[in-house]
Every structure is written in C-alpha cells, then in structure tokens.
C-alpha cells in the first residue's frame, strides 16, 4: 500500500527512529493507566466484576497489537519537509493526513519538548496560522537540534513577509 496520494510526492524526510520508542512509551503509559484503573475497579468494587470480565479478555490482545505494531506503523507513515514555499507533513496511521502550510502564512512557530521527549532528544515543531487552531501543522518526533534549526529558519523566512498573513 503506498503512502502517497497520486500526483503528490511524499515529504522527503522521515522522523527520527527514536520516535518509535517515544510512541511506544506513550502507549505504555496509556496502557498502565487503563489497566490500573480496571484492576482498581475489579479489586475495590466487586459489583463491577461481571462488567469488567469481558474487557479483560478483549482488551489485552488489542492493546498488545497496538503496542507492538502502531508505533512502527506511524514511523512508516510520518514524514515532513520544508520547501522554499511551504511546510509539508504527512501523519497518521489508519487515517492519513497530508498538511501543507505556505511559509508566507505562518503566524507562530513553537518547539515543544515534553519530559519524555527531552530524554530522547526529540521535539515537536508546531506551526500555526490564522485559520482555526487545528489548522496548523505539528511535526512529532524531530531531533531536538533539527527542530530548533527549522524553527530559526522559518522565523527568518516569515519575518520577510509583510502584512497580517490572512
């Protein structure tokens, strides 16, 4: 199955391989909190046991599949590129999403590093425009230095464009 729409090149760069580890850790944290909640219910509220039983059978295989497959799947899909004109990114796993933001329309640039990300020297580059808040681009799993350099370059480029970018 190809990752491209016909007529659209895939963005040129993959994200860092370490991002697989990041996504796996996220999935683990999620899994631990859900299992913890279910176990707590099972132990402290015996009345809920008949309801929890089926979940204990269904959830673990789905979760194991998610934990082992989806981070790789994401890594295979996620790609990004900064051309002279635009920031271009592809993300998702079941639902894929291509995003293109012209550099001349960028309103703000953020580099975000959570505690897990900084341990892995990763960062998320966030580009926003004057459209709705979900209208920008988030590139997850960039190398922290690369993200900083991209942010600097984009800041320089956007400052050369006059007007209010709407």
């Amino acid at each position: 199955m190809s990752d491209t729409l016909p007529a659209l090149k895939p963005p040129s760069h993959r994200v860092e391989r370490r991002a697989i580890l990041l996504w796996t850790l996220y999935a683990l944290i999620w899994g631990i909190s859900v299992v913890g909640a279910l176990v707590a219910l099972y132990v402290f509220l015996p009345a809920t046991r008949p309801w929890i039983h089926p979940f204990l059978w269904i959830l673990p295989p789905i979760y194991l599949l998610y934990l082992t497959r989806v981070p790789y799947w994401r890594y295979r899909v996620h790609r990004w590129e900064i051309t002279d004109e635009a920031v271009y990114a592809l993300s998702g796993w079941i639902v894929r999403e291509w995003r293109i933001v012209p550099i001349s329309r960028i309103q703000s640039i953020d580099v975000k590093k959570g505690p897990l990300q900084s341990r892995l020297r990763l960062a998320t580059l966030k580009i926003s425009t004057a459209a709705a808040s979900e209208g920008g681009i988030s590139i997850i799993g960039l190398d922290a230095d690369v993200a900083e350099r991209c942010s600097d370059r984009l800041t320089d480029l956007t400052q050369m464009v006059p007007g209010d970018a709407t």
Binding site: L5, R96, E97, V101, G135
Partner: peptide, 23 residues
Amino acid sequence: VIGWGVRQSLLQRRLGLATLRVQ
C-alpha cells in the same frame, strides 16, 4: 487560502477518495 489538508481514511483509500480541507 492559508493552508491545505488532505485526509484519507481506510475506506476512502479503498474507494480512491480523499477529503480536502482548505484553511
């Protein structure tokens, strides 16, 4: 136009469709 987005779900990929979003 200040941005483009193209979304494709599994069913859409099977059917050769996509949803284009103009920002």
